[in-house]
């Protein structure tokens, strides 16, 4: 007979091996359990990553909104926004310089600080005007001028503070 027929006829006798069923099942069960735990860990990891991304994303969005509010002239056009940001950076640098000088308050300092506060009010009024009446060059010039003035005042504050420090140093030497 053909070999295929012979094999087909004796198929049952070919299947003579017997496995250790229980031992094999235990291994399968353990393996399934481990894979389930691993899958859970992956799901948790993915969920945590998504959460981190969402938090970071919302923080970045928040930061962008704040930046957008800070450079409010950028709402009119990019050029003005850039100019305003440039002023703000310069003012921040000067203010840091002023704050780092260790000396007592000079007599002129409260007056200059009041002047800065006035400029803040003037600036807000200018913004309000633009918001209510739309873009007008006069208001924009005023706004930019407030920055220019602020810079000058802070420079004046730095100068006064340095003078005060020099004065205090001299007094210390005299006492010695």
């Amino acid at each position: 007979m053909k070999i295929e027929e012979y094999i087909h006829k004796n198929k049952k006798e070919l299947d003579s091996q017997l496995p250790d069923r229980e031992k094999l099942w235990n291994s399968i069960e353990n393996s399934l359990l481990q894979k389930r735990v691993k899958r859970l860990q992956i799901i948790r990891w993915v969920a945590a990553s998504v959460m981190v991304l969402l938090v970071v994303g919302s923080l970045i969005r928040h930061e962008l909104i704040i930046n957008d509010q800070l450079t409010s002239l950028s709402k009119i056009n990019k050029e003005l926004g850039k100019k305003e940001l440039d002023y703000k950076n310069k003012i921040a640098t000067k203010w840091t310089q002023f704050a780092s000088i260790k000396a007592g308050e000079s007599p002129i300092e409260p007056m200059l600080i009041d002047e800065l506060k006035n400029l803040d009010t003037l600036y807000l009024k200018g913004l309000e005007e633009i918001e209510n009446t739309g873009y007008n060059e006069r208001a924009v010039v005023i706004l930019l001028k407030t920055y220019e003035k602020r810079l000058r005042i802070i420079e004046q504050l730095i100068y006064e503070k340095q003078k005060q420090r020099n004065y205090e140093n001299k007094n210390i030497q005299v006492e010695i």
């Binding site: 070919l14 091996q17 017997l18 496995p19 069923r21 031992k23 094999l24």
Partner: peptide, 23 residues
């Protein structure tokens, strides 16, 4: 399990390898 074990055994030719493959 019995039928599949015999299939695996025919290919792997050893009890250990057949059980491993079947698992």
């Amino acid at each position: 399990v019995d039928a599949m074990y015999n299939v695996a055994y025919r290919f792997m030719q050893s009890k250990f390898d057949a059980e491993d493959a079947l698992q």
